[in-house]
């Protein structure tokens, strides 16, 4: 565990208790007359929500670090490359399909269809980019460029189909549900969502960690990386499955939460030796901190309805992205 990991672990340890106490009902930890209500709020509302924020943030942070390493580009965001939009499309499809399903299945249809969408996106990416990476082994090159284009193609296709589903919404109620859901949030999430997402995201981070040394090799370019023993097909598989699990499971339980995967590796990179392998674990921890802090803040903001977490993070993330672009123009990245 490197220095950056320790810093963000300590930050997370400080943020978690604060997050548990903050909300519409502030809980006073020194109040000895703690009510049953407070205990219930903690155990059934605050704690699962905080754990889910940590899990989702960790997945997005790790996916961002791995994605930037793979594309050798500090402006890559895992959400840009098809998997998150495909998961969102699956979730939107569930608004149509749920009424047709038996009640027991319908309750789970949204996360399951979102995971299905992510899986479909992963398969399409692996099929298109996998072929090119074996081509690259034959010297044609361009594996990473084709991966990017395939991801963008998927993202725009999924985006268009999602927009179609919205315009054809069966009723205004479904319409507002879809739109609300697309702007991710952690409101009213329970241990059920944690149980669904946590194992998948943990497995995904594990896959990305396995890819770390191969991502380091890519620092020197594709040919030099292969000369160091990199297996492009194995790397692509680890990456597609790892990002599919981390991002797909996150979208399945919380909707689209953007910019975490883009912003977090940037904040972490200067604290590390800048190689992707040293970035994945601290980015996971920093992502957990960011989503946990942002979710705690939207909870206490004095709005009539809670500001959606996805909107809040994009409000912070988009200007940050612009600042990065300006920094890049000045050659400071």
């Amino acid at each position: 565990m490197n220095r950056a990991s320790l810093i963000f672990l300590a930050l997370l340890a400080a943020l978690l208790p604060l997050s548990l106490l903050a909300g519409r009902v502030w809980i006073d930890p020194f109040d000895t007359r703690a009510t049953a209500n407070a205990a219930l709020i903690l155990a059934e509302l605050r704690l699962p929500r905080a754990v889910l924020a940590i899990v989702i943030g960790a997945g997005l942070g790790a996916a961002g670090a791995a994605m930037q390493g793979y594309l050798r580009n500090p402006l890559a965001d895992p959400g840009l490359f098809g998997i998150a939009p495909m998961a969102a499309l699956g979730a939107v499809a569930s608004f149509w399909l749920a009424p047709l399903l038996p009640a027991a299945v319908a309750a789970w249809s949204l996360p399951l269809l979102a995971l299905g969408g992510a899986g479909l996106g992963m398969a399409a990416l692996a099929l298109i980019a996998g072929r090119t990476s074996s081509d690259a082994a034959g010297g044609a090159g361009g594996g990473i460029a084709l991966f990017t284009l395939a991801g963008l193609m998927l993202a725009s296709l999924a985006g268009a189909l999602t927009a179609l589903a919205i315009t054809l919404a069966p009723n205004p109620f479904a319409l507002s549900e879809i739109v609300l859901w697309l702007n991710g949030a952690l409101t009213d999430r329970s241990w059920r969502e944690v149980a669904l997402a946590a194992p998948l995201i943990a497995a995904g981070i594990g896959m990305l960690a396995l890819a770390a040394r191969s991502l380091d090799a890519l620092t020197l370019g594709e040919e030099a990386a292969r000369s160091l023993g990199l297996d492009p097909a194995r790397l692509l598989l680890l990456l597609v499955v790892g990002i599919g699990l981390t991002v797909g499971a996150g979208v399945a339980v919380a909707g689209i939460i953007g910019f975490v995967g883009l912003v977090v590796p940037h904040l972490v990179r200067p604290l590390t030796n800048r190689l992707p392998s040293s970035l994945i674990l601290p980015s996971a921890l920093a992502g957990a901190c960011l989503v946990l802090a942002a979710d705690s803040i939207v909870r206490v903001l004095p709005f009539v309805t809670e500001l959606r977490l996805g909107i809040a993070l994009s409000l912070i993330g988009a200007p940050f992205f612009g600042w990065l672009l300006i920094g890049m123009r000045r050659g400071r990245l």
Partner: peptide, 8 residues
Amino acid sequence: PDIAWDVS
């Protein structure tokens, strides 16, 4: 040889 990250 390009170097993607500004490493030591």
